[in-house]
Design a protein around this nucleic acid. Structure first.
Lengths: 153, 153
DNA sequence: CCTGAAAGTTGCTAGCC
DNA sequence: GGCTAGCAACTTTCAGG
């Protein structure tokens, strides 16, 4: 199931995180190896699921997604059926970029990316009509100071 | 500065978000066009900054990053120098995957990805020794229900 | 586990519709 | 603006040290 990751593997992952478009040769050179061994390591890590989707980061504002909310959710319902419906609702909605179940008195946090405040309200109304939640606090982002998907390898 | 984005451009962006590793030919076929026009659109959107970094999503848990915190920060200091030092501290630290300045009574939210709770404490102690903050609430993620960087185009 | 090379694909450019 | 054709560069595989 799990694969041992050594220092070279970590260098490869760091290089791919920084720029997945660069060629095998470039990665190989930057980690001090050559094409084939690097390629074999990448293949193994892909098969093990350590390396997942390859994607591009888009400029959300340029594409009209100008509002970003963090939503703190408390619920009184903790039965299995409620949770199943709630999770499904989150997974289905593309506005929900992140959803975490939390420890402590807040039960869930969401990151929701939408065109504007009105679009958020539409999302919010749709969500609470689908599943009952006890208390919702929306935090509006004024400025994205930092955003990265890179892990600090 | 800004570029007009039409329906074909959006299809291309959606395809690239879903899988940036697929070939130009595949993208062209899925949007109902062919290589060259698609390539020209991609180049324009890259130059306009709409298409940014190309990266891979890694399995954080498999790589030993088993703890994820959302950190809510209130501050009493709002002068320019404090803010400058605070922002710099966030940008420099690789554990901080996201940082937003908020509207409302909470001033900042961070998403911090670390090996374990002890590593979070190390980060926290280092941060508050660098810049004074009034109130900090850490929310520990128990389960990542959903995580995507894709915009709902 | 690495090196080197062969074979098939692809990215990117240029010229034509 | 889109399509066809072409070459250089790349990914991927495989035999051999």
């Amino acid at each position: 199931m799990s694969v041992r990751i050594d220092a070279t593997d970590r260098k490869i992952l760091a290089a791919m995180q920084a720029d997945a478009a660069q060629s095998l040769d470039e990665i190989a050179k930057s980690v001090g190896s050559s094409k084939t061994p690097v390629w074999n390591r990448i293949r193994k890590m892909r098969e093990a699921g350590i390396i997942g989707q390859q994607t591009v980061l888009l400029d959300a504002e340029a594409l009209g997604f100008e509002a970003c909310f963090f939503v703190l959710i408390r619920t009184s319902e903790h039965d299995a059926d409620w949770q199943r419906r709630f999770l499904k609702a989150l997974k289905v909605r593309p506005e929900v970029q992140e959803a975490h179940r939390l420890a402590g008195d807040i039960d869930y946090i969401l990151k929701v990316r939408v065109q504007n405040a009105r679009a958020y309200d539409t999302f919010y109304q749709a969500l609470i009509s689908e599943v009952k939640v006890h208390n919702v606090t929306a935090l509006l982002s004024m400025e994205e100071i930092k955003s990265t998907v890179a892990l600090p390898l």
